[in-house]
Amino acid sequence: MYARAAIGLVPGFNRPGWLPDTVLERQGVTVDRAHLAEYDRVCGFRLCDTLPVTYPHVLAFPLAFRLMSRRDFPFPVVGLVHVANRIELHRPIDAGEALDLSVHAADLREHPRGRQLDVVATASVDGEVVWRDVSTYLRREGKGSGRRRESEPAEPPPASARWRLGPRVGTDYARVSGDHNPIHTSRLGARLFGFARPIAHGMWSKARCLAALEGRLPEAYTVEVAFKLPVLLPSTVAFSAAPEWTFTLHGAKSGKPHLTGSVTAA
């Protein structure tokens, strides 16, 4: 799939101007307990028999990547920017349950900096949708690539915790997620896309924030995040959470936002 994604960058590779109506599925996906334990360790979750809300995203990632690597997908997957993610957890999912996974693309739309689309994944048990994930990707295009003038950023909230992130955050998450994008694992790869150092995966940042709230969240909820500035590795970040279940991740010294999120009970 990565070879196919690289071929998609070749000039003259014709693509349609619309989203495919393709739906990719996998039936009866079971959880490898050793892999789950490693994911929990990398993201900071406690070991238990209930899946972290972000874990099915990892199970669905091969389908999502295959969909975005297809010839009939409107953009090359390399270069798409993951700008937001929303997960709806309808009930706790036990690690022993077999999941039916489905992935499709939706809602290609204009954006001030290019075009956006959603990749929608669901996990079902015995025909019941128990989890739904919407990842929003931005395709930057010349007509809207200029930076917009924005107001001065607000003062970040007081930190609930500070985390020192080493360079292994990128490679460790790549290993457990299957997402080996070189901007997360290679200094050279990061530089090719304009980053001084590798950057943390956005879904790792979301998972780490939710791990910090573990044990205090409702059994069914929706969690939405917007990915702001990338987290360069290594670095120190500050996590802040408010009682009404909003949370942020920002630079410990600069205060610049990396992620903003909210949780809404179902």
Rank of each mutant, 00 (worst) to 15 (best):
M1V: 12
Y2H: 15
A5Q: 08
A6H: 10
P11K: 07
F13N: 12
F13K: 11
P16L: 13
P16M: 12
G17T: 13
D21R: 15
L24D: 03
V29L: 08
V31T: 06
A34S: 14
L47A: 15
C48A: 13
V53D: 02
Y55S: 04
H57P: 03
F61C: 07
L63S: 01
F65V: 09
R66A: 15
L67W: 00
A84H: 01
R86N: 02
I87A: 03
E88L: 05
H90M: 15
I93M: 06
E97N: 09
S102D: 09
L108H: 04
E110C: 11
E110D: 15
R113W: 05
G114S: 05
R115A: 13
D118E: 11
A121V: 01
V125M: 10
E128M: 11
V130C: 07
S135L: 09
T136A: 08
K143S: 11
G146I: 09
P153E: 10
P158N: 11
G166A: 12
G166E: 10
V169L: 03
G170N: 09
Y173H: 02
A174L: 05
R175Y: 11
V176N: 04
S177N: 01
P182H: 05
R197P: 02
R197M: 12
G202Q: 02
E214P: 00
G215M: 09
A220K: 00
T222L: 03
E224S: 14
F227W: 05
K228L: 15
P230T: 02
V231S: 02
L232Q: 14
P234C: 07
P243A: 14
T246W: 06
F247M: 05
L259K: 01
T260A: 11
S262T: 13
S262H: 10
V263N: 00
T264P: 01
A265H: 00
